[in-house]
């Protein structure tokens, strides 16, 4: 049994890998932030049925949810530089090769989660009672005001559990970013394991780290939900 798991090596790896947790979290948090903004915009456009943008948004939501994360990342990573190249008129040294892969990773993950979040926001807004919007309009608010002040806060409470699920999925999704050469937790684990030719310890340490992060966020979201349930519509 002695040479199956090398515990001192596992501990050493664990210490090294902890340093990469902030990268993973940073990726997840920034993508979540941008994806929320994107999702909100897409939802609003579809909700108000804005002519061309509305159809585009629906198309984006369908495509974004049907593509695997890896393919979205690849398309961004390989496609975007090409697009920049075309837009810059074919100058090869226009600086896009200096862009960090982190930027592409955040962009790809944002595009991926944005589609899911748009659907989550849409169901949340739809499940807010229609009378709320009508009442807000009837007291003289503009439609934007009544959306922002009345509908959105109520929808946010409804969307919170689904958003927390999406965020937990996103934390796990960041592991795919290593495929486009981002050095986050999983990328670092790959490098360490192939340097030492020991796989079991490294991946167990990685799994435990991801697990801990997930559990922490899950508990945090549960507490937040308990707090937010105060604002929930109560059936009388």
């Amino acid at each position: 049994m002695g040479n199956v798991i090398d515990f001192s090596f596992a501990l050493e790896v664990f210490g090294k890998l902890i340093g990469y947790v902030p990268v993973t979290l940073g990726l997840a948090l920034s993508s979540m932030f941008f994806a929320s903004v994107l999702g909100l915009a897409v939802m609003f456009v579809r909700w108000r049925r804005i002519p061309v943008l509305g159809q585009l948004a629906t198309f984006y939501v369908i495509i974004g949810r049907a593509l695997p994360t890896l393919i979205v990342l690849y398309l961004v990573f390989f496609g975007l530089p090409l697009l920049l190249l075309i837009l810059s008129g074919g100058k090869v040294n226009n600086g896009f090769n200096q862009i960090s892969p982190l930027v592409f990773a955040v962009l790809g993950l944002t595009l991926h989660s944005g589609a899911y979040l748009a659907e989550i926001f849409r169901t949340a807004v739809q499940s807010v009672n229609k009378g709320q919007m009508e009442a807000a309009l009837s007291v003289g608010m503009t439609s934007w005001e009544s959306f922002r002040r009345i509908v959105l806060p109520q929808a946010a409470v409804l969307a919170l559990p689904l958003m927390s699920n999406q965020f937990l999925g996103l934390i796990k999704g960041t592991s795919i970013a290593f495929m486009i050469t981002v050095m986050e937790l999983f990328g670092a684990a790959n490098v360490i394991s192939s340097l030492n030719n020991r796989y079991l310890e490294v991946y167990i340490a990685t799994a435990i780290l991801y697990w801990l992060v997930s559990i922490c966020f899950e508990k945090a979201f549960q507490m937040l939900e308990a707090k937010m349930s105060f604002f929930k519509e109560r059936k009388i």
């Binding site: 049994m1 040479n3 199956v4 937990l168 934390i171 796990k172 999704g173 960041t174 592991s175 795919i176 290593f178 999983f186 684990a189 790959n190 394991s193 020991r198 796989y199 079991l200 991946y203 167990i204 990685t206 799994a207 991801y210 697990w211 997930s214 559990i215 899950e218």
Partner: peptide, 25 residues
């Protein structure tokens, strides 16, 4: 809890590279 808390890729690598190491030993 473990499966839902860890990425699919980590599980994939853990089994595909870890299990041969155990069996090899």
């Amino acid at each position: 809890s473990f499966v839902r808390g860890t990425p699919f890729l980590v599980q994939l690598y853990l089994i595909c590279f870890g299990v041969p190491q155990i069996l090899g030993a």
